[in-house]
Simulated scan of single mutants.
Amino acid sequence: MTVGTTNLHTREKWLEAALSAIPAGSRILDAGAGEQGYRRFCSHLDYVAQDFAQYDGKGDAKGLQTVVWDQSRLDIVSDITSIPEPDASFDAIMCVEVFEHLPDPLAALREFSRLLKKGGTLILTAPFCSLTHFAPYHFYSGFSRYFYRTHLDACGFEIVELVENGNYFEYLAQEVRRIPTVADLYVGKRPRLWELLSVRVVLHMLARFCRDDRGSSELLHYGCHVRGVKR
């Protein structure tokens, strides 16, 4: 039973396909690259990694933290809204699961518009709903399809693909699976055996509903995957 476990896998498969479609030799900026987890999909590209390099894995010890975080291989250390590169200096930009960590994501979009060549590709993903993570650098819980439709157009982009990852039942299943970990962290207790069995029952129910889903992603989902082109 995989319901509630496919968020990352689905996002990475979409990213791999989107990046593979960019012509070989194109110059791509990984904005907010962090540990450069998706550099592996860019072997055919001229890859440039940027990040502000202030997150250390521990943050303020609130919410979900990574414990360790290695940003020693960055090409550019700067604010994402002021990247020291000339206008129209990139053929493509990707910004993966970063927007919730930016105080001003619209300023980042305007900077991406400045940096991209006409006809260049913008690849974005961000959660629609997220738990507190990487605090204190967690400013938004998520972004809807309407955010992208409104603000990408205003910043000079045409959306050519917008995919919602997951649906209401998958998102609930993801969080139901997280209950033992969160209970241990914030209550200091683990669920009893009968409670764990109840969790299994709920997951089976959610899996059944998910198989017959008719568009509940309009209500809740993991996050949007967006591909835009600079006009």
Results as ranks from 00 to 15, higher is better:
22 I>A: 04
212 D>K: 14
186 Y>F: 15
141 S>M: 05
202 V>W: 04
113 S>K: 05
211 R>H: 12
89 S>L: 12
143 F>A: 10
123 I>G: 05
14 W>Q: 13
62 K>I: 02
222 Y>Q: 02
216 S>C: 06
139 F>Q: 11
32 G>W: 11
139 F>E: 06
22 I>E: 05
144 S>F: 01
222 Y>P: 05
170 E>V: 08
62 K>E: 13
130 S>Q: 14
61 A>W: 01
142 G>P: 07
201 V>Q: 10
101 H>D: 10
171 Y>C: 11
156 G>I: 03
106 L>S: 04
83 I>E: 05
48 V>G: 01
63 G>A: 02
180 P>Y: 08
100 E>T: 03
201 V>N: 14
198 S>V: 03
9 H>W: 07
199 V>D: 14
65 Q>M: 11
147 F>A: 03
52 F>W: 10
220 L>W: 08
13 K>R: 12
65 Q>A: 11
134 F>M: 12
37 G>F: 13
226 V>T: 04
96 V>Y: 08
164 E>F: 02
160 V>L: 01
46 D>L: 04
79 D>S: 14
133 H>E: 07
191 P>W: 05
144 S>E: 13
165 N>P: 02
97 E>C: 03
49 A>S: 13
71 Q>E: 12
31 A>M: 09
129 C>K: 06
24 A>D: 10
28 I>T: 02
74 L>P: 08
35 E>I: 04
18 A>L: 01
114 R>H: 08
103 P>S: 11
85 E>I: 00
145 R>L: 10
190 R>Y: 00
33 A>E: 00
184 D>T: 09
180 P>Q: 05
204 H>P: 00
49 A>V: 03
67 V>P: 00
156 G>V: 05
149 R>K: 14
219 L>G: 00
46 D>A: 12
199 V>G: 15
108 A>F: 14
181 T>E: 15
6 T>Q: 14
62 K>R: 15
163 V>N: 12
166 G>W: 04
202 V>C: 14
222 Y>L: 01
56 D>K: 03
16 E>V: 00
40 R>C: 12
158 E>C: 11
186 Y>V: 09
122 L>T: 08
148 Y>W: 15
39 R>D: 03
114 R>K: 08
15 L>Q: 04
170 E>M: 10
211 R>V: 11
200 R>E: 15
30 D>I: 03
45 L>F: 07
49 A>Q: 01
57 G>N: 05
26 S>H: 06
39 R>T: 02
79 D>Q: 13
74 L>N: 04
176 V>D: 04
76 I>Q: 09
5 T>E: 14
101 H>P: 05
164 E>D: 12
165 N>M: 09
131 L>W: 10
10 T>G: 00
29 L>T: 05
97 E>Q: 10
20 S>N: 12
92 A>M: 03
77 V>N: 04
32 G>F: 05
101 H>S: 06
19 L>I: 15
170 E>T: 10
13 K>T: 12
206 L>T: 02
165 N>G: 07
24 A>Q: 11
213 D>W: 01
125 T>D: 08
51 D>Q: 01
141 S>T: 15
196 L>G: 14
15 L>V: 04
65 Q>R: 09
48 V>K: 08
166 G>P: 09
125 T>M: 06
122 L>P: 08
24 A>R: 10
